[in-house]
């Protein structure tokens, strides 16, 4: 079957597999992480047609024909290989988490949140961030990063 991932059409062999393992094992997109496998920790978060989705609970066949976006699909690479980070990525560099494992969840959740709601309240940020466990305890920075990303996006970045 075919899958739309980060704007490209990719051929997938294993149709009876979960999206997470297709991304990691078959497509080599290891920026999406396994953390619990039962949809709680959020490390496997991707966007499917713009909506936050736990790839560890998503049969790959159920997303055929939909647009899947992973952490690798956010930054733009321009001429000469110059990388332009998405505002959410930029905000998380300014307000870093630590070990990087839960980042896909926090970043993808924030991207979806800000697409739907350009000016979230602190409660709305918490509601969105609350789906992702960060054992390094970087939640203060998640709040700051999401608020900062909203600011960057409003600034037209």
């Amino acid at each position: 079957m075919q899958l739309q991932v980060n704007g490209k059409t990719r051929q997938v062999q294993r149709e009876d597999e979960l999206l997470l393992w297709v991304l990691r094992d078959e497509l080599g997109l290891t920026g999406t992480h396994y953390g619990c496998g039962i949809g709680i920790c959020g490390s496997c978060t991707v966007l499917v047609d713009g909506q936050v989705t736990r790839s560890c609970l998503t049969p790959v066949a159920s997303v055929a024909g939909k647009a899947v976006t992973t952490l690798e699909g956010l930054a733009k690479t321009g001429r000469g290989g110059a990388v332009t980070l998405h505002p959410v990525q930029q905000a998380f560099v300014e307000n870093p988490l630590q070990c990087g494992w839960c980042l896909p969840g926090h970043v993808m959740s924030a991207v979806a949140l800000l697409n739907a709601n350009p000016a979230p309240t602190p409660e709305q940020i918490d509601d969105s961030a609350g789906i992702n466990l960060c054992r390094c305890g970087g939640y203060n920075n998640v709040r700051k990063a999401v608020a900062r990303a909203a600011e960057l996006k409003r600034g037209g970045l």
Binding site: G39, Q51, V52, R54, L57, S109, A112, D127, I131
Partner: peptide, 8 residues
């Protein structure tokens, strides 16, 4: 649940 559960 949470926003993800609510979407699916």
């Amino acid at each position: 649940g949470d926003p993800m559960v609510r979407n699916r």
